[in-house]
Design a protein around this nucleic acid. Sequence first.
DNA 1: TTTTTATTGTAGCGATCGCTACAAAGGCAT
DNA 2: ATGCCTTTGTAGCGATCGCTACAATAAAAA
Lengths: 184, 184
Amino acid sequence: MGKKENRRAEVIDLLAVHFLETGLGDTGLRRLAEVAGSSDRMLLYYFDNKDELVAAVLAHIAGGLTAALNELFGTTPKTPDTILKTLWEAAKSEAFKPHLRLWLDLSTHANRGDPLLLAIVRQISEGWIEWMANLLAVPEPEKKAVAALILAAVDGQLVLFPGEIARGDAAIQQLVKLFKNRGK
Amino acid sequence: MGKKENRRAEVIDLLAVHFLETGLGDTGLRRLAEVAGSSDRMLLYYFDNKDELVAAVLAHIAGGLTAALNELFGTTPKTPDTILKTLWEAAKSEAFKPHLRLWLDLSTHANRGDPLLLAIVRQISEGWIEWMANLLAVPEPEKKAVAALILAAVDGQLVLFPGEIARGDAAIQQLVKLFKNRGK
DNA sequence: TTTTTATTGTAGCGATCGCTACAAAGGCAT
DNA sequence: ATGCCTTTGTAGCGATCGCTACAATAAAAA
């Protein structure tokens, strides 16, 4: 009875690690089965098809990331420059870098038209903006715009400096300064 | 003699359009041959292998984009907020959107470890920063950092709002305001 | 025990991938 | 005409893709 569900959850855990390490490019069923210590046949027994498998693993990863970010940021409001600095340090850390890279993968596939990933990405994206907006100590009408700016600035470093995200330090530092000047 | 080279150039032109429209995901030799009005066999006659083909097409696209941007921006220095506004309008236009999307594709593959694309992307990226830095009317030591911030902010919108880049309007507007406050 | 149901292995389908072997066809100079 | 070099078509290799048919086993229910 429950055996199937248990194993399914284990598989999701193992594949989450693999997805974070290698992105969405290496997702052949036989390869994933190897990683999960299973067989392609069994993966299609636990999941209806490959799309459902991918969606489940991504949902699991997104959940973990949300939890980690909540722990990192707490719930008390913060100024844009401190939020940006904290987020940037996280983005450069070994713990979060894989998440960022995977996020870039997802967004790219979504931009290319994959309807499944498009829906997933939009939902996650909106969730992050909302979450950060609630954390920002700025006037209400600007909250979401500032949140989007911060997230985009960090994501953009990954696009601009692939494989060496730390090179974005100077750009982020500029934005921090701009935020500090902001109160006029 | 020259027949091979002529046809090769034609093929590059045709494939550039296709790459811009569909990204790097649809690059089967047989499919590309169809698009170019040729055959897979002939593509491998014009090019040594698929990698060389892709590199040639990408170089062609990059060249065209550089020319277009130079025409759009001219050579007289501009303030960060006007450059950002101009670049953002361009990014949203139908003419440039495909270039942005393709750029995201490239960067994603580079981040995933593809060594060929990593070299290409880093070179192009560095070129853009340099180009924009020379265009920016800001003190020398900050030029490259501001350039990287602007480029990253625009790229980031694509990551954050796949398929509906215009939703980044508010975030870009925030950055424009920050730039305007900048002189203190 | 029998009978059903849940779990897993083996084999393979049809499609696509980059690439190659082989040879036919065309233009060229001699 | 002959031979040569460039250009192109046909066919296919071996690998991988998502997925399925079929059957064997194990566990649970009767």
